[in-house]
Amino acid sequence: MNRIQKTFSSAKEQGRSVFVAYLTVGCPTPEGTLKAIDKLVEGGADVIELGIPFSDPFADGAVIRSAAYKAIAQGVDMDAVLSVAAEARRRHPETPFVAFGYYNMIFSYGNEKFAGKAAAAGIDAVLAVDLPLEERGELVPVLKKHGLAFIPLIAPNTPMERVRRSAEGMEDGFLYAMTVKGVTGVRGSLPDDVAGRLDAIRRETGMSVVAGFGISSRGQGEALVKGHADGYVIGSAIVKKLCEEGWEKAESLV
């Protein structure tokens, strides 16, 4: 079993949900990101998503966009992301890390070079927001060669037949089910049919499923996925605290 599989299966044994925490690497600073990872892992985060800042984050809401621009302004690039990952891996040997970003950053770095270095840095999986089923063939085999998983995104409007095809061969990772159509960011309420949708995705694929987009607290995440999915992602709420509100004073990031 890889780190991801171990994490999901031990959470299942303990009868609890997997808490996936997203942060943008380099916001407020690369050193701040490392401290935040420490704090998140201590506070119970099971999986860390390391956001790769990109100049044109068209799938993100205002909070994560602003974090990306701040990180880029400090010169945070793929090499910086990989060194943060390597140091975080040294500090947290068991926590799965997912490199999360837009495909151009990977493509521009070189798929092969990226996969090799990401694996060496201790990254477990990659989620490329703009690499759907039709296009992922140019990256996934390269990742697999280096022992990295690929995390498919499932949208609220993805037909079930397509959900099954998206899940094929991805058992070394998990499925990321978006709760809403739209960009990342905290929302007042989530659609009523999320639970049924998560049930169906899990039933159809037999894979571990996490719900993401619009979840702002662990309480909300737990309540949403209990009995319907294996975990939940908190992103914008963490990034907001981290980059905008002076997180060092905060008791916890979530």
């Binding site: 703009d130 690499l131 759907p132 296009e135 498919p152 949208a155 409007n157 993805t158 037909p159 159509k181």
Partner: peptide, 12 residues
């Protein structure tokens, strides 16, 4: 070319 978009847009 291609369709390098978020999954949500594949349906539309």
């Amino acid at each position: 070319g291609g369709q390098y978009v978020a999954e949500t847009l594949m349906g539309p």
